[in-house]
Design a protein around this nucleic acid. Sequence first.
DNA 1: GCCGAAATAGAATATTTGTTCCATAAAGCA
DNA 2: TGCTTTATGGAACAAATATTCTATTTCGGC
Lengths: 271, 271
Amino acid sequence: MTDTAAPQTVEAFNDRLQGVRGALPKRLQQCADHVARNLDGIALSTVAELARGAGVPASAMMRFCQIMGFSGFAEMQRLFRRALAKPAPDYATRLANLQARGAGQPAALLAEFVEAGRLSMEGLARDLDETALEQAVGLLAQARTIHLAGFRRSFPVAAYLAYVCDKLGLPAVLHDGVAGLSHGAALQPGDALLAITFSPHAEETLALAARARATGVPVVLLTDPPASTLSSQADTILTVTEVDFGAFRSLSATIALALALAVAVASRRGT
Amino acid sequence: MTDTAAPQTVEAFNDRLQGVRGALPKRLQQCADHVARNLDGIALSTVAELARGAGVPASAMMRFCQIMGFSGFAEMQRLFRRALAKPAPDYATRLANLQARGAGQPAALLAEFVEAGRLSMEGLARDLDETALEQAVGLLAQARTIHLAGFRRSFPVAAYLAYVCDKLGLPAVLHDGVAGLSHGAALQPGDALLAITFSPHAEETLALAARARATGVPVVLLTDPPASTLSSQADTILTVTEVDFGAFRSLSATIALALALAVAVASRRGT
DNA sequence: GCCGAAATAGAATATTTGTTCCATAAAGCA
DNA sequence: TGCTTTATGGAACAAATATTCTATTTCGGC
């Protein structure tokens, strides 16, 4: 039987993993997938923990280790412990390295966006208006149907919310504007509208919000800071600032906020 | 006879260490010094190893742990493992946290998602395969038309890319699956496909990728780590790991990568 | 549907690792 | 120096963990 010598580096391990994965029976494939997803975790876990995470008995994980060329789990773990103990994969250093690439180099660009995203996240956590968030959760949790609206740059956020709501079992509809339809008439008393919009604000979103208010449907607005003009159009306003790099603004913080909002609403509803 | 409760953080541990160090007998001081020098190593060592490193018998190290306020070495090690393994904490515990705190505390939830997002970003910067990124930029920059595909959880990313490409003046089309149409025939030689997909992979995406390859259209895949099954279906694979909180995974890192990709392609074309 | 081979789960065992205990050595004190 | 207190090292013990073994199930080919 066998097989090649044990991998000596994490890269070699990965290669080998790719190589064998296809030919693996079900349980062992589960092991492979879970291991691939938690390379870091291996160094600190016990077989039992790792196996539980993969949803297999410990003995299956054991066989997996042997198929990978190790004498057992202990030997495999040693590999990952060495890798982890090595020069700490220092984030700051790595980022600096990437940024040092010439401007225009893809890796340098990425480093900048990553940094902008990280700053946005931190800003969100720092500046969050907890009262507004609490209020938004309350409004949405009571709604019969949650209407989601967002166009242009905001559309991905609305679409993501629609996906998450569906997963959570929340009754939500996405106003996606397909075929230029507005579905304003779908807003009925008892519902709620969650509108995502950044300046310059899309006409469609504002129109929908206005219509909601006219119908007595509460409006939660997720927007960027100069929110004064919109204050009359919403019951609750959540603001989020995205740090930009060049002319480009990411959505990291907005999406994190949206996700938290959805999960909080689902939890409040008592799913 | 414990003087104080066990430190709960590495900082508290350090404080305590400074505090007691002076009043320690020789062997225990050796322990203190060696531990202070190898804070990282503690998570990965056994008592025996650590003791050997300090030049003392295991029982001395044991007494040291107890003087520091822990019940023993195991408890002390847990502290450092938690600190080291932040990115991959125990899944079950976190899910329990989610359920316990989510009910009354949307802000706490948000904090978790922000933290997960931040870690994902750092992971992206750390683990990025620069060669693959470079290659992906090259492929997409040469394309006549860039086809964007992503369904379910990946859809928001594809949609965001479509928005950004439009802003950048890149010829891109979004395969959004409206009306159940696949638009596979739109893939023509000279084009390129950028497909975003996470396991469990959507059938539509895989089908589109297969069709692209059959047509000689290069495929760039943006996906999560166990990418082995897909390796035959793509010319370049970019992997990105999103740290999850509970059952929920954000898109922060994926979107940052997508944005960087788009901007780099635009820059490459413009030059 | 039957058969043989492969895969699997869980119990049984081996090993490693953590922890306690105590006899001895060292240090402080009169 | 003799006595008491404290520290020390190593061996004995306990717990956790890895590993192997085997009865049972599953799967693929006839």
